[in-house]
């Protein structure tokens, strides 16, 4: 059996340290080892985006990266984006605009959308559709997901303006 590796990560602001086989996937680390079950598994071949997390500021599919590759990095999952007392505008917008049905894709969708809006705070519909194409939803047909992201963008821009 290959030697276990010593891995340190920061997940949602919390330092984690553990020994893992080199083949351990990050999604497994999150879900099984750290009990962070927001990111889901839909394919394990990097097609569906249900496992999307943010690593050092970039959207990454956690099923396609080893825990060892995330060594020393900062990982954010849906649990780190917002909770009952500090809901992210995207979380609210998905509810307001019916951007989810079964909810299985939702953590990955919202996590990806946070990055999309960071990179492009004023996306057109086309840019949203292109920027979200790595995340599959089987339920909604995307129309209301697009709407939710547009609504969140508007809200976030207004808040930013008000703050300035």
């Amino acid at each position: 059996m290959p030697k276990k590796m010593h891995i340190k990560l920061n997940v949602n602001g919390k330092d984690e340290e553990f020994l893992a086989e080199p083949r351990e996937l990050l999604i497994y680390t999150l879900r099984e080892r750290l009990n962070i079950t927001g990111p889901h598994i839909g394919c394990e071949t990097s097609h569906c985006g249900a496992c999307t997390v943010t690593i050092d500021g970039k959207s990454v599919k956690a099923c396609t990266i080893f825990a060892a590759q995330a060594d020393g990095k900062e990982v954010t999952t849906i649990e780190g984006i917002g909770g009952p007392d500090d809901l992210h505008p995207l979380q609210n917008a998905f509810k307001e605009h019916h951007g989810l049905q079964c909810g299985y894709c939702t953590p990955g969708m919202i996590t990806r959308a946070t990055k999309l809006l960071e990179e492009n705070p004023n996306p057109t519909e086309e840019e949203i559709r292109f920027g979200m194409a790595g995340n599959i939803c089987r339920c909604t047909g995307y129309q209301n997901i697009v709407k939710s992201i547009q609504a969140a963008a508007t809200e976030m821009n207004a808040a930013k303006e008000a703050a300035e």
């Binding site: 927001g38 889901h40 849906i78 917002g82 509810k95 989810l100 939702t106």
Partner: peptide
């Protein structure tokens, strides 16, 4: 009516079978 299910799903707190431990 807005959905009552959405709070848990949007916050990663759904409880799907693979979340059962």
């Amino acid at each position: 009516r807005k959905r009552v299910e959405d709070a848990r799903f949007t916050q990663g707190k759904g409880n799907y079978v693979d979340d059962v431990k």
